[in-house]
């Protein structure tokens, strides 16, 4: 049976605002840059996503959430495709997105693309007390995309979203 397509790409994109990064629930997959495209044709609706890191363990959950969110709105034929190119970058985050990260307690990526050496020499502001007296504890933190810092003023440890 051929189903009549009764939705448009902008509508689907609006529905997908409800799909969040499970590790950072204040951001949608669109804001974080994982949602790459929506293709609607006679076969139905295809959602194209890209992982932040190659082994991002949230991918299966995000795929499930996309299918569920669209099914709730009556869109059944959904294929979720994962692509690696172009490689995801923190450069795709808008200033608004970075502000949401900070408000959530995660220091936002400071400069363009990844540079481990530059990251080490960067001054990362504490998202709790805004002090710039902070120390890198480890470039590998609670998830693949974050580094671990400590604030020397409020003494709180915090996550920094690595440039990538």
């Amino acid at each position: 049976m051929v189903s009549q397509i009764q939705y448009t790409k902008p509508q689907v994109l609006r529905m997908l605002v409800d799909v969040r990064d499970p590790e950072i629930p204040v951001l949608s997959i669109e804001e974080i840059g994982m949602l790459r495209d929506v293709v609607i044709d006679e076969n139905g609706c295809e959602v194209i996503i890209t992982p932040t890191y190659t082994a991002c363990p949230a991918m299966a959950m995000i795929e499930k959430d996309i299918k569920q969110t669209l099914a709730d709105q009556g869109i059944d034929v959904v294929k979720v495709t994962t692509v690696f190119a172009p490689a995801w970058s923190t450069d795709w985050m808008s200033e608004d997105t970075k502000e949401k990260l900070r408000a959530y307690g995660i220091a936002a990526p400071l400069h363009s693309t990844c540079d481990a050496a530059k990251d080490k020499s960067s001054i990362v502001e504490c998202p709790q007390c805004f002090s710039t007296k902070t120390t890198l504890i480890s470039q590998f933190g609670s998830t693949a995309c974050k580094a671990l810092y400590r604030c020397e003023k409020c003494l709180e440890p915090f996550d920094y979203f690595k440039c990538h």
């Binding site: 190659t54 692509v83 690595k162």
Partner: peptide, 14 residues
């Protein structure tokens, strides 16, 4: 291969 490499190199640098 080029696409996977462009992704993996970011991690490999860390």
């Amino acid at each position: 291969i080029a696409g996977i490499a462009a992704k993996a190199i970011k991690e490999a640098r860390y």
